[in-house]
């Protein structure tokens, strides 16, 4: 049997969708019995939400003032203290999980499996390497805890129709005082979240400036889409870092991805491989983005995008 502990990601008010995706991945393990650990300052509502995730049998709620900002140095000792009896400990392959889970793995004396994309067995998985240019099959040691992060884009969130039991517990772990949260500057947006939006419109360096990037937002709004960007557009300062799609930014899998003025560097394509349909709009007919696009349109984005927006808004 696989006894799995999933570390919930949240912002204090609601679970991140990555948690339900971790549950989907864990559900593929043979004879999975899934617990979700909710570490928060006050996790009552979060634990109740986790309890609804289909396939979860137990929610473990750990309230602690030190859990207000989900710092890896605070969480890792608490998770390690709870780890006994679990064969698997999973977290999301988001910046939250990427920061936290290796710290947990090291405390447990194991290597981590990063970015699980396929479950082949209780200790056998597939994961991407070399920016997704090679998929490697890995075998974790059978006699040790499997610590893994789950690649978001490979899984669909489980439904919220379950009703697991919630157990509130306290953890006996010594927490450090060497790490202090200062602030989080989050981009405020009413648009759909980039990582969960069914449609994403992204702009690249060809937009030329932050002002000109506005046409991407307008099109996105007409399509009720989330907005992303290439690394080049972020580096050039047109948009903030959290909008970056690609190997080192966000890996996404929307039903429809519209790449505008993006040439399609390997690092960018890594972030969109799992999209349902890719549309590319670029003036360079030889741009690599057209090699992966389902629908391509060659031309000047500054005339095409407003025309497309008008056509969709009609």
């Amino acid at each position: 049997m696989s006894k799995v502990l999933i570390i919930a990601e949240h912002d204090g008010a609601a679970l991140n969708l990555s948690t339900a995706k971790c549950v989907a991945c864990a559900s593929e393990l043979p004879d999975a019995e899934i617990s979700v650990g909710v570490f928060a300052e006050n996790g009552e509502a979060l634990a109740a939400e986790a309890a609804t995730l289909a396939g979860v049998s137990q929610v473990i709620r750990v309230d602690n003032a030190a859990n207000a900002n989900l710092l890896a140095a605070m969480l890792a000792p608490q998770i390690t203290a709870l780890a006994d009896g679990y064969s698997h400990i999973f977290g999301p392959s988001t910046t939250f999980g990427k920061d936290l889970m290796p710290r947990v793995a090291a405390l447990l004396g194991v290597n981590q499996i990063s970015d699980v994309m396929t479950v082949l067995g209780s200790h056998s998985f597939k994961r991407p390497t070399y920016a997704g240019n090679a998929i490697v099959t890995v075998e974790a040691p059978a006699d040790k805890t499997v610590v893994a992060t789950v690649r978001n884009a490979s899984y669909r969130a489980v439904a919220a129709d379950g009703s697991a039991a919630v157990e509130t517990t306290s953890v006996d772990a010594e927490l450090p005082d060497h790490t202090r949260f200062v602030e989080l500057k989050a981009g405020k947006s009413d648009r759909p979240d980039l990582q969960t939006a069914t449609t994403v419109v992204s702009g690249g360096r060809a937009l030329g400036s932050a002002e000109k990037f506005e046409i991407i937002y307008k099109l996105a709004d007409a399509m009720s889409a989330g907005v992303g960007a290439s690394r080049a557009a972020v580096d050039a300062g047109y948009v903030p870092n959290e909008m970056q799609v690609g190997q080192t930014g966000k890996i996404i899998a929307p039903d429809l991805y519209v790449a505008i003025g993006i040439s399609g560097a390997i690092q960018h394509l890594t972030g969109i491989k799992d999209a349902g349909t890719i549309v590319a709009i670029n003036k360079d007919a030889d741009a690599p983005i057209f090699e992966v696009a389902d629908i391509g349109l060659v031309g000047d984005l500054f005339s095409i995008v407003p025309e497309l927006e008008a056509a969709i808004s009609q």
């Binding site: 939250f96 060497h178 790490t179 500057k185």
Partner: peptide, 12 residues
């Protein structure tokens, strides 16, 4: 650089 934006922490 985190998924939500920019987080600042102070560490000893």
């Amino acid at each position: 650089e985190v998924d939500m934006g920019l987080e600042t922490i102070e560490v000893d």
